[in-house]
């Protein structure tokens, strides 16, 4: 009995060391996350005036929010555009990266090279490069060239494709979505790097014995996919969806607007109010999507 007691206390003593390891995070969370977070809420309700030795707050109530929603010239429009674009991109990125991971997980010659190339966007597709590429003149020239080739029949252009689909009597909404997707395809592929890695790591972690049993039972590849691969990947699917949402909401035109309005006219208060509206929206979206997906998530064990 005595021994048992001693053992317990030793173990809980050891566990106390854990606090020491995570202490930096706790400090960082309080000082550089929670405090600024609360301050951001306070700022959004105030006007901030810079003085010599610091800053002063002038209480505005919900004035900043009203200004952002009713008066600001660009916020509403940009907000809607950003949200729609992101909502189109997310399923495309997930589906593409899922598909790409399955391809890269198969054995074939040149697989190593293919993986090297597929992971390349992780390196190139971020920050300043991406924003410069968006306004690149070079790309425009190239695009007009491709457009000309399409007109002369060398490449099947987007317009012809859309005509084709209209002839098939597909619903217009679907055609619009497909057309947007085709426009976005390069962007989707280039923003899927991390997601492919995550899915691939997930595929690798599925125990081969599951497949062996399935083969012994005479399962077809189709059945193996839907009965093993897909369910086993659903937890990772959730991780990836969350990552994609965060990733695409962290860098876009709206975020640039928020940043610019902090520096330029309007000031910190307005910018904070925009941030809060935006954050609230992302939070609600995340809760809805995570809630929907986690119902279908299958946990092994």
């Amino acid at each position: 009995m005595n021994f048992f007691k001693k053992h317990l206390s030793l173990k809980s003593k050891r566990n106390m060391i854990g606090y020491f390891f995570v202490l930096p995070f706790v400090i960082g969370f309080l000082l550089f996350f929670l405090v600024p977070f609360i301050q951001a809420i306070v700022f959004s309700l105030n006007e901030i005036e810079m003085t010599g030795e610091g800053y002063q707050l002038i209480y505005q109530g919900f004035g900043n929010y009203e200004y952002v929603i009713y008066t600001h010239p660009r916020f509403n429009q940009l907000f809607v555009e950003t949200v729609i674009e992101t909502l189109i991109d997310i399923p495309l990125i997930i589906i593409f990266s899922f598909f790409a991971a399955i391809l890269l997980n198969q054995k074939f010659r040149g697989r190593f090279l293919a993986r090297t190339i597929f992971f390349l966007p992780v390196i190139m597709g971020a920050g300043i490069i991406l924003s410069m590429e968006a306004e690149d003149y070079m790309a425009e020239i190239m695009a007009t060239q491709i457009g000309e080739e399409a007109q002369t029949g060398l490449i099947l252009g987007v317009d012809q494709l859309s005509d084709l689909l209209i002839e098939f009597n597909l619903p217009v909404v679907l055609i619009d979505y497909l057309m947007d997707s085709v426009d976005q395809i390069a962007e989707v592929i280039r923003s899927s790097g991390v997601q492919i890695i995550v899915f691939l790591a997930g595929l690798q972690s599925i125990s081969p014995s599951l497949y062996e049993v399935a083969i012994a039972e005479g399962a077809t590849p189709w059945e193996k996919f839907w009965k093993i691969t897909f369910p086993m990947l659903t937890p990772i699917l959730l991780t990836n969806v969350v990552y994609t949402i965060i990733d695409s909401f962290v860098a876009n035109d709206l975020v640039d607007l928020i940043r610019d309005s902090a520096v330029g006219a309007g000031g910190y208060g307005i910018s904070s109010a925009m941030s809060m509206i935006y954050l609230l929206f992302i939070a609600v979206l995340l809760i809805i999507i995570v809630g929907l997906i986690s119902r279908g998530v299958y946990y092994h064990e």
Partner: peptide, 29 residues
């Protein structure tokens, strides 16, 4: 590796910091 009290809660906070875009707390920071 350490099963201290509040481990799960603190780890949830880690995920939370990941979810909030840094731009949100940019000005106070």
């Amino acid at each position: 590796r350490f099963d201290f009290r509040g481990n799960k809660f603190l780890f949830a906070l880690v995920i939370f910091t990941l979810v909030v875009p840094p731009q949100m707390i940019m000005i106070p920071l």
